[in-house]
Design a protein around this nucleic acid. Structure first.
Length: 891
RNA sequence: GGGCAGUUAGCUCAGUUGGUUAGAGCACUCGGUUCACAUCCGAGAGGUCGAAGGUUCGAGUCCCUCACUGCCCACCA
């Protein structure tokens, strides 16, 4: 084991994250804590990290991913499970190619000028730089992933998984090559899948164009948003039940501009409501028309070149750009009198997800995955709960999409990506599928063979990620032990792109689901709720935030107030309060450590002899352990975090430490030192918090460890220390009740001091009448004195009506009363008003409770413990009400 | 056109098998140089939980309707 980094003896006044983060990360790495030890007797916990794209630097989306996955990973590791978190990066075919193409454009060149080989070299170089940046940023985030198992989609293993899958699906008939309508991005020069097209509403026009009947008078008017496609029309379709057009069916019309005759046909797909009720059919450039044409056996006329100029089929418009052709044809239609009218019209237009260019639907020869046979088992796995989706509502979204899925176009006319493992024999036209480079055609023996120039959709390789990273198609130890994985944690925006494909391909390739749970997080927005984007300039850089507030603070801020699947905002105020919390812990530990004398805390905590505040904080700690564990089991990390925050700040620091100070300062030899409990609770809390704030908890824990009993010295790091569990007998409701009373008394005195403007330096007398609680509270008079700055504090059973209270303030509390004689005049009127207000509130509550407790329905239907609770509450409120009323009479 | 989410304090949000008089952070008001912490401490003010119905002994929480906001999906030219 590597020697632990040095801990300063004297802790600085404020936590300075910059000084400690790197040393601990190095220490963890050097000791291989991130690497799991395979133990066949234990069930492992496994997360495969969503691989960031090699498109630049990490953003807040990556940071929340890292934070959540590290929380889960560290938590399970501390619970003693062999825990694997496997990191990786994605070559991101189109996304990365677009980034580098932009760089080339800025340099005044492009990929075609460079040539394929040079361009790929340039890509490799970019990937190298990018991976370095990503790795450094991930390390800065403190994540405990197993770097020895890091994978890259273009590595030999994952690449072989891609080829193997392609071959397998081809052999099974699930991959085919066909001429079908696809989305074409003219800028990227490639086909896109439906998912890679973003639809945006644009304002345009609806043109009404008259098509004259061939050989007779009469005409049909059709409406179109893309008049340039007229030259590619091969029919006009009407609804078969539309009486307006029944007589036209079977006749021919003449296309304007190109004077070609096309038939009028009937098809159910045509709505009688929209436009004129007659639709021009352009099978090669519209997905709906494509389907109509298939049904009706119509011909296809491609009118576009790949650069989106009109081709030889466009007659007079040949050579024009698609949008120039639109203008030209409209002009011609106006001149020929065939444009009936033009309406303003907003319609949705597809844009390339990566470069925002308007895409064009066109018929093209591409490779497709026949998806339904893959979708069926993937639907089943989620529907029957084999794969659990958190939050559950996304189950419906997933199933709905999967049930309406179309075949997946997987070929891309890009250069960057996995080359399609297909060779064509130029001699006999044989199609050869091969992972390696085949020398000759196996059918005719010709060596005149050529590889398909295209690459695969990047999501094809990502879809294999959970098994390809673990060694598939080989039968590896990792694959056998770690697969299926435990949790797939990612953003909800990736359900279709990625999650669905991993489930389909995972089941197909391995026969097993790829993961048991899908945890989906929301988008991180800016403090105004806007999506962060470079163009808006509202991007918050994780590195800068980490520099400024510390890694723990950024991570804590990201998971503050989040719940699964919900978007959240990141604000400086969240990062500040998270930083403040880290500093609070720092100082609490600083306080504890300072008070420790060597060996002092080594004593075992003997629960039977502890004062009430010790039993109280131990009881509260135990409840916190139970609550936090329960919430984390349920993936409620934001809420678990809040529970820890509240416990540490509002209970441990605000009350327990303050109470402990009194005993620490005590000169009496009978006083039991609070240090063992002080240390125990802090130490346990640090372990509870470690998955959320790994760095500060490690530093503080190491600091504290030096003072812990010897059996703790063997544990080298908090990150491999056991996660706290509940302790039998720790819950102590009696002590909790007494402490609640003490807190109430202290608060009421403080409040009275403030309201009556008692200077801080002045001590005031307080007489407490505690009834049943007298015995329990009496030993704590010194605590009340110190915390409320009240002296002397006397505690008696019942209040003596012996006068001396003319100018005293009487505070009626839940089970107790506090009398404070004041030198200054008590404003009787004001006190009376306050009392009346409190009486009104209490009395209303009592009325409600009494009614409920008289209600037969309530008594018979509500669970007994609830009834009992309500009854107790009612008693105590009646009692308080009575005392409030008596007090009122005195004014 | 379908679907989903959100609507709780001035702002940002928690509140998960329905069960105290609904919470936090930030902001605000007042007071604090007591030896862990001013990145702090103490005290306070601030909410008919979007609207209207319903189920229930009991509703912020479950059901119905509506309004507004946001998101996703979709082949009406």
């Amino acid at each position: 084991m590597t020697q632990a980094p040095e801990i300063q003896d004297e802790m600085p006044r404020a936590y300075e994250p910059g000084n400690i983060e790197d040393k601990w990360y190095r220490f963890w790495l050097e000791n291989n804590y991130f690497e799991p030890v395979i133990d066949p007797d234990k069930k492992p916990f496994v997360i495969i990290m969503p691989p960031p794209n090699v498109t630049g630097e990490l953003h807040m989306g990556h940071a929340i991913t890292a934070a959540l996955e590290d929380i889960m990973t560290r938590w399970h590791r501390m619970r003693g499970e062999p825990t694997l978190w496997l990191p990786g990066v994605d070559h991101a075919a189109i996304a990365a190619q677009v980034v580098v193409e932009r760089q080339l454009a800025a340099e005044g060149t492009d990929r075609h000028q460079m040539g394929r080989e040079k361009f790929l070299e340039r890509m490799q170089q970019w990937v190298k730089e990018c991976r370095q940046t990503i790795t450094n940023q991930h390390k800065k985030l403190g994540i405990s992933c197993d770097w020895s198992r890091e994978r890259y989609t273009m590595d030999e293993g994952p690449s072989r998984a891609v080829m193997t899958t392609f071959q397998h699906l081809y052999d099974k008939g699930l991959i085919y090559r066909g001429e079908r309508i696809i989305n074409w991005c003219p800028r990227c020069g490639t086909a896109l899948s439906d998912l890679e097209v973003d639809h945006m509403d644009l304002s345009g026009h609806l043109y009404y164009v008259r098509y004259p009947l061939a050989g007779e008078s009469g005409s049909i008017v059709v409406a179109t948003t893309r008049p340039e496609t007229i030259v590619g029309d091969t029919a006009v379709a009407v609804n078969p039940n539309d009486d307006r057009f029944k007589s036209y069916i079977g006749k021919n019309v003449v296309l304007p501009a190109v004077n070609r005759e096309i038939p009028v046909i009937a098809d159910e797909a045509v709505s009688t409501e929209f436009g004129t009720g007659a639709v021009k059919i352009t099978p090669a450039h519209d997905p709906v028309d494509f389907e109509v044409a298939q049904r009706q056996n119509l011909s296809f006329i491609n009118i576009l070149n790949e650069d989106m100029t009109m081709n030889e089929n466009a007659g007079p418009y040949q050579g024009m750009d698609r949008f120039d052709a639109r203008v030209a044809i409209v002009k011609d239609l106006v001149e020929s009198g065939q444009l009936v009218k033009t309406e303003d019209y907003n319609h949705s237009v597809g844009h390339c997800q990566r470069c925002q260019t308007i895409v064009e639907p066109l018929v093209s020869k591409q490779w497709f995955v026949k998806i339904q046979p893959l979708a069926a088992p993937a639907i089943k796995a989620v529907r029957d709960g084999s794969i659990k989706v958190v939050p559950q509502r996304f189950t419906k979204v997933y199933i709905n999409w999967m049930e309406n899925i179309y075949d997946w176009c997987i070929s891309r006319q890009l250069w960057w990506g996995h080359r399609i493992p297909v060779w064509y024999c130029l001699a006999c036209e044989e199609i050869i599928i091969s992972a390696g480079t085949p020398g000759t055609c196996p059918k005719c023996g010709s060596s005149n063979i050529e590889q398909d120039p295209d690459v695969l959709d990047t999501w094809f390789s990502s879809g294999l990620w959970p098994h390809s990273t673990l060694g598939w198609p080989d039968d590896t130890e990792d694959l056998n032990y770690f697969y299926p994985t435990s949790v797939m944690e990612t953003g909800y925006d990736l359900i279709f792109f990625w999650v669905a494909r991993m489930i389909m391909l995972g089941i197909e390739n391995t026969g097993k689901i790829p993961f048991h749970t899908v945890y989906l997080h929301g988008l991180i927005r800016d403090d105004q709720g806007e999506k962060m984007s470079k163009t808006k300039g509202n991007v918050v850089d994780p590195l800068i935030s980490m520099e400024k507030y510390g890694t723990d603070a950024l991570r804590f801020a990201l998971t503050t107030g989040t719940s699964p699947g919900n978007d959240s905002r990141l604000s400086t105020s969240k990062m500040e309060s998270s930083r403040n919390f880290a500093n609070k812990l720092w100082n609490a530990t600083r306080f504890v450590v300072r008070n420790i004398a060597d060996g002092q805390t080594a004593t075992e905590i003997r629960r039977d002899s502890l004062p009430v505040e010790d039993r109280w904080i131990l009881s509260r700690l135990d409840r916190t352990v139970a609550t936090v564990t329960g919430l984390m089991d349920d993936f409620q990390f934001g809420e678990a975090q809040r529970q820890l925050y509240d416990f540490l700040w509002s209970e441990y620091c605000d009350w327990y430490i303050e109470l402990a100070k009194i005993r620490l300062h005590s000169t009496s030899e009978d006083t039991l030192s609070p240090l063992p409990v002080l240390v125990h609770v802090l130490e346990t809390s640090l372990r509870l918090l470690h998955p959320y704030m790994p760095f500060v908890t490690e530093e503080l824990w190491q600091n504290l460890k030096r003072h812990l009993p010897s059996d703790w010295q063997q544990c080298e790091s908090i990150m491999i220390a056991p996660y706290p569990e509940t302790t039998a007998g720790a819950i102590d409701s009696g002590s909790e009740q007494v402490m609640e009373s003490i807190i109430e008394i202290v608060r009421s005195i403080r409040n009275a001091r403030t309201e009556h403007k008692v200077e801080n330096s002045r001590w005031i007398e307080a007489r407490i009448y505690a009834g049943e609680l007298t015995q329990a509270i009496t030993p704590h008079a010194p605590s009340i004195e110190a915390l409320a700055r009240a002296r002397p504090v006397s505690i008696q059973d019942t209040r003596q009506e012996d006068g001396g209270e003319e100018n005293a303030l009487v505070l009626v509390l839940t089970g107790t009363e506090v009398v404070i004689p004041l030198e200054s005049m008590v404003d009787a009127e004001a006190e009376k008003k306050k009392l009346e207000k409190e009486i009104a509130g209490t009395s209303a509550e009592v009325t409600r409770l009494e009614a409920r407790l008289k209600d037969e329905n309530f008594l018979s239907k509500a669970p007994p413990d609830i009834v009992e609770k309500e009854r107790q509450k009612c008693y105590s409120l009646i009692n308080k009400l009575e005392r409030l009323r008596q007090q009122l009479l005195k004014y």
